[in-house]
Design a binder for these strands. Structure first.
Lengths: 340, 340
DNA sequence: TTGTACGCGTTATCAC
DNA sequence: GTGATAACGCGTACAA
């Protein structure tokens, strides 16, 4: 209601100077016990609250970090943010979130905006349209710590936290082979993101390592949505030699494929095995429940936050960076369980 | 890398004063076209960026809003945030998010923290442990705009955006009755939140309006998790006269109940109908797909943001408030479809 | 049209 | 141990 009380107000009331009040509030040793207690008491009485903005301007540290994701309300990203906030809040940081809507233009504006707001760091998962690294470069040239998570461009000296997508693709495919599948297709999200390429590579190597033949026609490029998955399954089943399993880089795509297969009365896992990627919550509620590669999003968020904190602790004049690759975990469910 | 350039830097370079630079940058009319262009050009050349912190301190407006929810990575809340950010970002606001972890103590600290950070407003969905209104009162006494969404305490002069929970309970129950169900149970989340009480009331009135008998033993209090739902279903089926339908205030609870019923080989919807609340994404992937009351979380977020913006436009000395109740929409799926 | 001076709230560096 | 003063970067009333 009333004007906010400042240290100046309480200084006037006590007939001392604002500097003294500041010292008392900040436990400065060079101050008499007497005045400290007096200040603390009247501060409480006047309901004084520190203005973080003024402090930020003075210190150059806003105690805010920007987190930039394509969309907040995707389970994966909201869970990463969950981890980030859990880790950063206890350290006194506030988390500012922005959504790129998968648009590089918007992404660049957002980054510039956050920088203008003097955030102490930016944690970013790029939009897949963000292909022009040079543009990103101009903003990366700042001294503000930058950490990529999950989706990252191929830039050498910037910190990043990702999962082992290659291993995820490898493990999922190997698992299908172990279940007796020999003709394994792959739904490949072809938006240019490195992580999907890595999953594809893992798939390919698992096939080759097992002595199976890698068939390019078994790799279907698609967007990460349900309809695309249906179309992909349709195309696959029309092949002269249809596959007997699918490893999909995205749970959403797989969902569409499964619907299509079930419409054809193909039994999963008896006739056909499937494994997805991301371990979206819905995979466990489907019938049959769907195996998927878990990305531990919350841990990824925590880790990204930790890397940021490390970077802050260091002398800012030294530019350090750190690449963290988190392990994945294949969650086996009914959709790929032929043997107990 | 290098020091950030300020208006002083560019003033020095041009042998003019910072005030002039400021005016040029802000399209102040009282300035010569010549110097304006000169300033703009060198500002661009020196890569000048406005420091929002300084502006905030000066103007008293941080252009930040705080959004406080129990957990960010719940589909409902992340979707609300999605709506808020979509609406506020184009207006130049940044969204700061914090999680209460359903803990009132933490909630109060967060609110105080946000106020210290000089946010221009706070959008809040209270934790269910937040029962002591008096404590909340001290922070509501500030001039900072406050908007509750979804979960709100019963405080008269604060803005809020909620859905019509009563109608949701009513419609869901009425729908079950229309499908031929006569013994309808209700899973009631008993954490004290008003919204659950409203859903219960809707349920009760729909029963009474249809000439059915309201049986207290059909109302099972529970927590909003899967295990609790299983327990509830177990208890219900052990009654002398078990129900033939469930309306649940929470999709999660219903999920557990459905699992239990299916273990008993009870056929849904033939033998038993169910309707949930929240329209969680997984409801459409279950087998059978689950009917549920949709809360349009994204729209709720947008609306909460709009109410905030309205409040900002108004003269701050006038305290206004606005209560918005959004309509619900019953999404009918297989779990309650006996008739086409 | 431009310059001067000040204030936003805080802390740090001098003095005393 | 405390006071006075400057500084963080910006916008603006008042002068000129």
């Amino acid at each position: 209601m009333t004007k906010k009380t400042t240290i100046y107000d309480i200084a006037k009331k006590l007939n001392i100077t604002a500097a003294t009040v500041s010292r008392a509030l900040n436990n400065n040793p060079r101050i008499s016990k007497n005045t400290r207690e007096l200040v603390l008491a009247t501060a409480a009485k006047m309901n004084y609250k520190q203005n973080r903005l003024a402090l930020a301007l003075k210190s150059g540290k806003s105690k805010n970090v920007g987190v930039v994701v394509p969309y907040i309300n995707r389970n994966f990203f909201s869970s990463v943010i969950r981890g980030i906030e859990d880790e950063l809040y206890p350290k006194g940081y506030h988390v500012i979130i922005s959504q790129t809507h998968e648009d590089q233009g918007r992404e660049l504006k957002i980054l510039q905006n956050l920088l203008n707001a003097q955030v102490d760091g930016i944690l970013l998962s790029t939009s897949y349209t963000s292909q022009e690294k040079e543009k990103l470069d101009t903003v990366l040239k700042k001294s503000t710590p930058f950490i990529f998570f999950d989706r990252k461009p191929d830039i050498p000296d910037i910190s990043s936290v990702t999962i082992d997508d290659y291993q995820g693709g490898y493990d999922a495919t190997k698992h299908l082979i172990d279940q007796g599948c020999t003709k394994i297709a792959h739904l490949h999200v072809s938006n240019g993101l490195e992580l999907y390429k890595n999953r594809l590579q893992g798939y390919k190597n698992a096939i080759l390592d097992s002595g199976l033949e890698f068939k390019p026609e078994y790799v279907i490029p698609l967007k990460s949505d349900i309809e695309a998955g249906m179309e992909a399954a349709k195309a696959l089943m029309k092949l002269p030699e249809p596959p007997d399993a699918i490893f999909s880089s995205t749970d959403n795509g797989l969902l569409g494929a499964v619907k299509y297969l079930q419409d054809l009365s193909i039994k999963i896992p008896e006739d056909f095995c499937v494994v997805g990627f991301s371990n979206e919550p819905f995979t466990q509620f489907m019938n049959p429940s769907i195996s998927s590669v878990d990305q531990s999003p919350v841990e990824m968020g925590r880790m990204a936050a930790k890397v940021f904190l490390e970077q802050m602790d260091n002398d800012q004049s030294i530019k350090i960076h750190k690449k963290v690759v988190l392990p994945i975990k294949l969650v086996v469910r009914k959709s790929s369980s032929r043997k107990s």
